[in-house]
Design a protein around this nucleic acid. Structure first.
Lengths: 245, 245
DNA sequence: CGGGTAATTGACCCGGGTCAACAGCAGTGG
DNA sequence: CCACTGCTGTTGACCCGGGTCAATTACCCG
C-alpha cells in the first residue's frame, strides 16, 4: 500500500512505530498531477519533498535549443532529495509522465520524522546514496554503452526497482513511458530506440507493447547490458535484522 | 590552506569554532597517494571519508570489457559521500590522477563534527546536494551535447570549481588530466578529444599545454557549452551572512 | 641517451542521427 | 456512428559525427 515503506524495508527492518510514522507522514498531504504536467520547475524555490505513491515521473534538464535529457525516473516509493530546502532554486525539472499521486512533505515534517526515528533516518540516507549511485550509473550508461546495451540496462534497472516495491507481476510490469522518453533518458533518438527495441524483441529478450513490459530472458538481457546490480545496494545485511526483536 | 573550509564558506559563513573544528578534523590523519593509484576499489567495504587536500582524483566505473567512464573529478576541497559507511560495498572506484594528499575521516569523527556543529552539517549537506547536481549535469552533458560542447562544458565547470577553492590564478589554473582522462569523462575517444581541443584552441577559446589551462574567452566558451552554472549553487544567500554576528 | 607515456595526425568506417512518409489507435466533438 | 485530430510507433533512404587503426612526434624522467 505504501511503497516508501516497502522500499525502506528492503534496506532495514522497521519497528511498528517507524512504520506508522511513515504512514502518517505520507498520508497527510497527497496531491495528484495530470500526465505530462510539470511537478516542479528549474529556477523555482524548492517547496516540498515529494514521495511518489502512484505513477511514473522523471527529472529532466533541457538545453536552450530544446534538447532534453531525462536524468532519472521516479516510480512509486521514490522521493526527491531530502534536504532540497537548503538550496535556493531548482536546477532541474520534475515532470509527471503518467498521472501521478504523490505525498508532499514540508520541511518540518521531514525534520520531525528524522529526529524521532533514527532507523528511518538511516534508511532515508541509504535511499539517498542509492539515488546518487543510480545517477552515476546513468552517466556510465550514456557515456560508454551502445544503444542496444543502454536500453537493455534501463530495462533491467527499472524492472528491479519496481520489483523492490512490489510492482512487478512475475516477469512483467507496467512500463508507461514512450519511445521518446526512452530516447531522452538514454541519449538516443526515438527512431533509433524503435529500431533497437525491435532488435531486442527479435532476440527474444523482452516484449513491450501497450505500456506493458515482459522480460522473456532476464539472464540474456543482463548479459547484453553488462548489468551489475551492485549499485542498487539491495544486499544490505540490515534487511535481515528485525528491529522489533 | 584548507580547501574544504574555503569551499564550505562559499555556502555559509562559519564561526571560529566551526573553522577550527574543520581544521582539526582535516589535520588529524593525512594520507598521500601516488599518481594513478587507486584510493578505493569497487567491491570493498567503505572505510573512510576522504577530504581532498591536494591533487586531482576521480571516481570511475568500468565495464567487464574494459570500457571506462570517469563519473566525477575530485579536486581540493571535495569529499566523497558523507554517509558512505551505511553501504556494504563500493559500487565504483576512486583513483588518484596526480599525486594526492587527502585527509581520512573515520565514521566517528564525521559523527562528532556534525553533532557539535550544525552549521558545518548544513554546509556539508549543501555540498552533497551540489555533488549530485553535478552528477546530473554530467549525464546531460554526455547524453546530449556534441564533443565540442562537452569539452567546453567540462572546462567551464572545472574552472569554476577550482576558483571557489582559490586554485585559479587570473584566467588560468592547473589542469593535470590527460586527453585520455578527458575522453573517459566525456564519453569520447582520446583521438577525438585531441581533434576537438585543437578546434577550441583554433577558435581562441582556451589554451591548454603542459598541464596548464588558460581561458582566453570565457564568455565564448560558456556560450559554446551552453553552460549554466546554476547547478553549482554558488548563489546561496547564506554566503553573505556572518555567523559571528 | 633510452624508454615509456601522452599528443598529434591521416585514412577510412560505422553506429546512430536526420528527414520523411505512413500506420495504428485513442479521444472528441458533431 | 463517423470524421477529424494528435500522439505514438514503424520503416526506409541517406548522411555525418565521432570511432578505429596506425604511424609519428613530442615530452618527461631517470
Amino acid at each position: 500500500m505504501n511503497p516508501l515503506k516497502t522500499k525502506l524495508e528492503a534496506f532495514t527492518r522497521l519497528s511498528e512505530a517507524d512504520r506508522s510514522a511513515i504512514d502518517r507522514a505520507v498520508g497527510r498531504n497527497v496531491r495528484t498531477f495530470a500526465a505530462r504536467r510539470d511537478m516542479a520547475r528549474e529556477g523555482e524555490r524548492p517547496r516540498a519533498v515529494y514521495v511518489m505513491l502512484e505513477g511514473w515521473a522523471c527529472r529532466y534538464k533541457t538545453l536552450p535549443d530544446g534538447r532534453r535529457q531525462i536524468v532519472a525516473f521516479f516510480v512509486p516509493g521514490d522521493l526527491c532529495d531530502l534536504n532540497i530546502f537548503i538550496l535556493k532554486e531548482m536546477d532541474h525539472n520534475v515532470g509527471a509522465i503518467t498521472a501521478v499521486r504523490a505525498a508532499e512533505l514540508g520541511r518540518h515534517e521531514v525534520e520531525r520524522m528524522t529526529e524521532e526515528h533514527p532507523r528511518i533516518t538511516r534508511a532515508l540516507w541509504w535511499n539517498e546514496l542509492v539515488t546518487v549511485a543510480v545517477q552515476r550509473d546513468w552517466t556510465l550508461n550514456v557515456g560508454q554503452r551502445s544503444a542496444y546495451e543502454r536500453i537493455s540496462h534501463l530495462v533491467c534497472e527499472m524492472f528491479l526497482r519496481l520489483r523492490t516495491v512490489g510492482l512487478t507481476q512475475g516477469d512483467s510490469c507496467d512500463f508507461p513511458i514512450t519511445q521518446t522518453d526512452i530516447g531522452d533518458a538514454t541519449g538516443l533518438t526515438s527512431v533509433h530506440v524503435n529500431r533497437t527495441l525491435k532488435e531486442l524483441r527479435g532476440d527474444g529478450l523482452i516484449e513491450l507493447k501497450g505500456r506493458r513490459l515482459t522480460i522473456l530472458d532476464f539472464a540474456g538481457l543482463r548479459r547484453a547490458a553488462m548489468f551489475n546490480d551492485n549499485y542498487l545496494h539491495l544486499d544490505h545485511e540490515g534487511r535481515h535484522l528485525d528491529a522489533n526483536g
